[in-house]
């Protein structure tokens, strides 16, 4: 369970978050949408303890992330996975070394077991055969897949995705979203996806929250967001989502087949 209560944050006098509150249930996958600069990534970094709020707090499973320090924060982070917008792979390490890094540094698993888990995770994200390549030698989509494998290799209870499809073409973007969905079915993590990928992200989340002016402007199921009468939500979600909604029976049919 993640609870964000009355979160305020400003940078050089610019108020980004203005008393934001939201609750996310265990095992749920939620999409955070909103215009650029509305504080989605800032909220995600507060959840990960990478930023400290000016006011308010983030509570994950009863622990106040905003005040945790040292070993307690480290322990909490061990249960978190974070997919950065740019992947944040260590550029001096190969894909294999990147995925193996958290296991080598944080567990006492044998080299053989680590190899097995890394190869298994790379296979799950479709990167078999690219183990010995460096991040600079692979495409943007592969970097995201490798970063996803690195985040998932430690079996986190909560996954934070910071714009996982940004900079990717629509086909690769969709494959990343499908990958997130299949990983969620396999691992049942609580997922928070910051994205502009509307309406495609609606297919993999149970709930959507829209941030506007530093607070949650609207939240609900994808259908509720599409049928919202709020002009701000409508202008952001747009006609594409309505078209997507109309196509839902077709998609369900093709999925059944």
């Amino acid at each position: 369970m993640i609870e964000v209560e009355n979160l305020h944050k400003s940078f050089d006098g610019n108020k980004v978050l203005r008393g934001l509150s939201i609750k996310i249930k265990k095992g749920e996958v939620i999409a955070l949408i909103g215009g650029s600069g509305c504080g989605k990534s800032v909220l995600l970094k507060h959840m990960a303890g990478l930023m400290r709020p000016d006011q308010g707090h983030v509570i994950i499973d009863g622990n106040n992330v905003s005040t945790l320090k040292g070993k307690k924060l480290t322990t909490l982070r061990e249960g978190l996975g974070f997919l950065f917008q740019g992947g944040a792979l260590f550029d001096s390490m190969t894909v294999f070394e990147n995925v193996a890094f958290p296991l080598k540094e944080k567990t006492r698993l044998s080299d053989k077991l680590i190899d097995e888990r890394v190869f298994h995770e790379l296979e799950n994200v479709g990167l078999s055969g690219s183990e010995h390549k460096y991040p600079s030698q692979i495409s943007g989509g592969m970097v995201k897949r490798a970063a996803l494998a690195r985040s998932l290799v430690t079996d986190p209870e909560t996954m934070l995705f910071d714009e996982p499809t940004t900079g990717l073409d629509p086909v690769i973007g969709l494959s990343i979203l499908n990958l997130i969905s299949s990983c969620h079915r396999r691992l049942s993590f609580t997922g928070i996806i910051v994205t502009h990928e509307i309406p495609r992200v609606f297919e993999i989340v149970g709930r959507v929250a829209m941030l506007h002016d530093g607070v949650v402007r609207a939240e609900g199921s994808p259908k509720e967001m599409i049928s919202s009468s709020d002009p701000v939500v409508r202008s952001f979600v747009g006609e594409d989502a309505e078209a997507w909604s109309l196509c839902e029976p077709e998609r369900s049919g093709s999925q059944d087949q």
Partner: peptide, 12 residues
């Protein structure tokens, strides 16, 4: 490139 943040989030 957020590699240091990634390291911190791994609990390192």
């Amino acid at each position: 490139s957020e590699q240091i943040d990634a390291m911190e989030l791994m609990g390192l």
